[in-house]
Structures are given as C-alpha cells and as structure tokens.
Design a protein around this nucleic acid. Sequence first.
DNA 1: TATTGTTATACTCTATAACTATA
DNA 2: TATAGTTATAGAGTATAACAATA
Lengths: 174, 174
Amino acid sequence: MSDNSLDLATQAVDLEIIVDRARDGQKLQLRLWLRMLSITKMISQEIRRRLRIEFQATLPQFDILAQLYRERDGLRLGELSRRTMVTNGNITGLADRLEADGLIVREILDGDRRVTVAKLTKQGRETFAEMASAHEGWLRELMSDVDQDTLALVLSQLATVKNSASRSLVESED
Amino acid sequence: MSDNSLDLATQAVDLEIIVDRARDGQKLQLRLWLRMLSITKMISQEIRRRLRIEFQATLPQFDILAQLYRERDGLRLGELSRRTMVTNGNITGLADRLEADGLIVREILDGDRRVTVAKLTKQGRETFAEMASAHEGWLRELMSDVDQDTLALVLSQLATVKNSASRSLVESED
DNA sequence: TATTGTTATACTCTATAACTATA
DNA sequence: TATAGTTATAGAGTATAACAATA
C-alpha cells in the first residue's frame, strides 16, 4: 500500500468518525435505549430460564421476594406494587402463587383492616437466600469479561439515566 | 407533590447512595444488572403504553418491524427469529398478527420452498416510519436530563457488557 | 367519599415439543 | 435425514375496569 493510499484511508476513517459524530448528537438516547433493551433481553432470558429450571420461579416473583427479604417486617401490598412496578391487581395474582408455594404469607394489619402486609415465611427466607446466591453467580458469569472499573463507571452513570426517566415519568403523570 | 414529600424523596436517594457505597466492592455485576433491569422495566412500560395507545402495537412487534425496515429485501423468518431473540414458533404468531394488520407480507422463496421471507408492505413502511419517529422523541424526552457525554460514554461501555454476556451465553450452549 | 385490595377479563408473550413440507 | 416453518399447548405477565370491605 503506497503512502498516498494510506493517507486516503486515514482521511476516510477521519471522515467516518466525523460523520458518526454528526449522526450522533442526534439519537444517542435512542441508541442507548436499544442497547440496554437488547442486553436486558439477552440476560433476562437466560436468568428466567435458570430461575425456572432450578427454582420453579419467575423474575417478577424473584423481584417480590427480593423486596420482602430486605424488609423483615414485610410490606403492604400497595407498597410492594409500587416498588416492583406491578399493578395492584396483578400483585394479587403473584402473591397468590407465592403464598401457594409457601414462600410468603399475607396478614391483615391490626388497626386498618383494609391493609394487607406480605412477609416471607421461614421457608421463603431460606429459598430466597439460595436464589439470590445463585443469581449473583450467574451475573458474575455473564459479565465475566467486564472489568470492575467499567462496571463501577456504568453503574454510577446509569443512576443519571434512571433519575431522568423517573422524573420524566412522574412529571408526565396527569 | 408537597415540599415535604420532595424532601423525603431526596433523603431516600441519599440513603441509597450511602448504602450502595458501603456495599460496594463486591457484587458490581449484580448491581449493574439490577439497575439495568429497573431502568428498562420503567422505560419499556411507558414505551409499550404509548405504542399501544398510539399505534395499537407491542414492543416485540415494533422490534420485528424495525428489523424489516432496514432490510429492504426482507428477512427469512429464521433470521428474524435470531435477531429478535424470539423463538421460531413464536415468530409465526407475531408475523400472523402483523400480516393481519397489513404491515408485512410473507413470500415463499423461489428455489427453496421451505423458506419464507417476510417484508414490510408499503403501509408497513409508512407506519413504521411514524412509529420510529415518535419512539425516538419519547426516548429523548425520557432521557432529557442526561447529557450527551454521559450518553456516549455509557453507550460505548455497554458494548463490552453486551459482548461479555453474549460470549458467555454462546459458550454455555452445549 | 376515598382507599386498599380482589376479582374478572382479554390479550400478548414465552417456552417446549410435535408435526408438515421440502430439500 | 436435516432444515424451515407451523401448530398446539400451557403458563405467566400485563393492563384495565368494576367491585367489596373498610376507613
């Protein structure tokens, strides 16, 4: 390859970068979204598969157990609904299945008989501890090529994204 | 929202950060995953809501249309299945609905009658162009607080995550 | 009257496996 | 025999609205 053609190649690359940048500026939000969607779909399919096979559980169920695990006194169903972003009506069905499996119990609150509090049973705590441990290992495995600095960086930056989205959503609620 | 509840929200965020820091070091993969999951759930619920209301469409359907939009000659159903991470059997059902809506057509390939190629119809192209434009606007809105540098940075770093996950998944296929 | 949770309903997605037509 | 796509089936999640009990 002659010096001349190398120059041309270099120019072409520069141009490409410039064009990319120009095209960027726009649509970065969209591209970031599509990338997150693709990653979460890929990973969650695998996680769901393993949860189903090894624990006969689903991701929304895991999510509920996780919320209850860190709230030893349990949570009202309404609060559980808010935290898991699952509607009230659907929380009932999820809780039904978890209760049938003996992982949670529902208790009516003394003092306000409208309120129901869900808690983990002993078996629920034990089962969730196993699930969480396995889950953590799976994630470590699935992200084994990503170095700690990158993880920490992306994690912190995504907080901005999360806050932006939740702010937009709350503000558009009318 | 009253000033009081705003303060409580701010306190909750601060507490989360402190607890996050304390727990750091370990489990970065898990925490990154949970954060991505929470963000994508939040955003995708809103996107799905708007797609349904404004276009009577779902996210998987949008995904299929997007793949076909950029492949003017259409795609085999098997390739569509691979790209959208939807099983072959379920692609059939999705394609049925899109075809019933007049957005795509299925054609048997000359030369190999086992193969079916899906393409956008004229109406499909027009409809998708509108959907994509609206979709881009929604994302810009939902991430309006995130600056361009952060977007670009996270976008590029997530490529690593994506590659790591897909490599792990492929390797564990046996 | 407002709030908490349940019930009812309809639809879509997801996963798996058996099956048909074609190569 | 292998491949491409379809059919069949079961189970869950999701969204919406009407409803009962309680405050």
